[in-house]
């Protein structure tokens, strides 16, 4: 069964069509990468799936439910979690508090958010911090973290939401080669353990080809092709528009 089904999606900005009748199907438990040159519409696609940008036309379905007109917070409650290209965490809170805040928000907003935290919740947040290699930073304030650690913290927060679909927008942007390798290993181990459906965009092709089960190539707001990494790598048209000749 498909976890995400996008059909004939159009997003207009004035006369421009950022998405121009795009259709996409992502299987449950799949790790899919979306690539394409700048301006292909990747960020608009993510923003539309998350509910940040309204669709001018078309449908977005999550596990068979039409969520096209749903507000972002309702999509989150339905299981859509998002990590941003420029990571968004609460800078004045500690790493531990950021994870706890996400965990408690997922349980019902203000009724429980930042109430007295239960032992089980502490244990769960500590386990998440350990899994993401953030345990030694638990008491540090978010604003003092490196870009790589911020991204990992954001993924930890997204995972607290018990998401069914995780949208990762450029998860290794701004990272050093060492941080990139760590993050790739982290995403792979998370995916192998949880089998959560992941949709990611990434400019670093080594990250894309080492992580993705399947790759969707976008061009001018449409899907050019979808296939296994070797298949996409071998396509002449993809090499021409995106990877370069040769």
């Amino acid at each position: 069964m498909s976890a995400l089904h996008v059909s004939d999606l159009v997003v207009r900005y004035g006369a421009n069509r950022a998405l121009d009748g795009l259709s996409l199907e992502v299987e449950s438990g799949e790790l899919r990468a979306v690539i394409g040159p700048n301006g292909a519409g990747k960020s608009t696609l993510f923003a539309t799936i998350a509910g940040e940008t309204p669709a001018s036309q078309g449908r977005v379905e999550l596990d068979g439910t039409d969520i096209t007109r749903w507000a972002p917070h309702l999509r989150v409650r339905r299981g859509v979690a998002r990590a941003f290209q420029v990571s968004r965490i609460f800078p004045s809170l500690t790493v531990r508090e950021n994870v706890l805040a996400a965990q408690l928000c997922a349980q019902g907003g203000s009724r429980v958010c930042w109430r007295t935290v239960l032992g089980a919740e502490h244990a769960r947040s500590e386990a998440a911090l350990a899994e993401l290699g953030l345990a030694h930073l638990a008491a540090r304030r978010g604003e003092t973290l490196s870009q790589g650690d911020r991204k990992r913290l954001e993924i930890a927060m997204a995972l607290q939401l018990e998401a069914r679909l995780l949208l990762l927008d450029e998860p290794t942007a701004g990272m050093s080669p060492r941080e990139t390798a760590q993050t790739v290993a982290l995403i792979r181990s998370l995916w192998e353990r949880t089998r959560i459906t992941i949709l990611l965009t990434e400019h670093d092709m080594s990250v894309v080809f080492s992580l993705a089960q399947r790759i969707t190539v976008m061009q001018r707001g449409r899907v050019l092709c979808t296939g296994a990494p070797e298949e996409v790598r071998g396509r002449h048209d993809v090499r021409e528009i995106y990877l370069g000749r040769g």
Binding site: E52, H73, I89, F90, G109, L161
Partner: peptide, 19 residues
């Protein structure tokens, strides 16, 4: 607490499922 969270980062707060 939630008011201060959405003051600091409304987008992140929204994507934690908060209206």
């Amino acid at each position: 607490n939630l008011l201060r969270a959405l003051r600091d980062d409304p987008l992140r707060t929204r994507f934690l499922g908060i209206d």
